[in-house]
Amino acid sequence: MQQLLKVEWLKIKHYNAFKILGIFFIVGIFLSNYITLRIVGSVKDTQAGIMVGSYSPYNFDYVWHTTSWVTGCLLILPAMLMIILVTNEFTYKTNRQNIIDGWSRRQFIDVKITLAAVFALVTLLIAVITALIFGFASGSDFSFNKIEFLFYLLLKAFTYNMAAILFSVLIRRTGFAIGVFFIYLGAENLIGQLLDLWSVKLREVDKIDLGSMGSYFPMNAADGLMLFPENPVKSMTSKAFATEYHWLTLALALAYVALFIWWSRRKIIKSDL
């Protein structure tokens, strides 16, 4: 696998789209966390500041969760890069050439899946560094409180990258695949939100709690694990949120990512290239 990854590195290290999206992503994570910090800080200076009290999202009590959540909003960037890298192979017919030159179909798709995992790990690493910087800058005492959200970020990042691979191997054309991916994310989000509203209605009015139904969709499941960070306002409005059945959502998220892997491999291994 190391040898296969070395070849993938040769493919991307001189690629401008890789460099540009990579820089956007890293700068974006720092910047959006910084903006979040400044916005919450500026609320404190207003009349609403009384609600916020001493809360700071980047105290070590909250920093792992907040950073993971904010980073999770930018996962579309590595996913787009993943789509470009995979569909490029079809556009240039290098998928054929890689096989002709001696890779097996399994090696071809498995190294892409590994690359998706590597991108997710790099995302995690950047989030950890960001969280440490912001956490220590907040002046609070170091803590591992809510560290599990780093794992959910890793899972969410891998889910996004795997969905990107699946869309790429099924659609094969770069622009079309990116377009469909965006539409799918938007559609799932919209339907998910409506189902969540319905879930709240069922729970409050009909006393049937089906949990957050929106979270039962593939991308929303990974999203749903990444609960909106705790804050004083959220706790006041908890009635407006659907119940999260944590273990169910986690099981679904893992099942969906397994499905994406199985389906992508099957497509490459079984069909003509």
């Binding site: 040898q3 070849v7 040769l10 001189h14 017919k93 290098t94 050439q97 030159d101 001696g102």
Partner: peptide
């Protein structure tokens, strides 16, 4: 086979390095 299949954004040398690496 059929058409020259290479990474468009890479040079001849960079492309051949990939071929050599895949072929071992």
């Amino acid at each position: 086979l059929e058409t020259p299949n290479f990474y468009h954004y890479l040079s001849a040398v960079q492309n051949l390095k990939i071929t050599a690496a895949i072929k071992g």
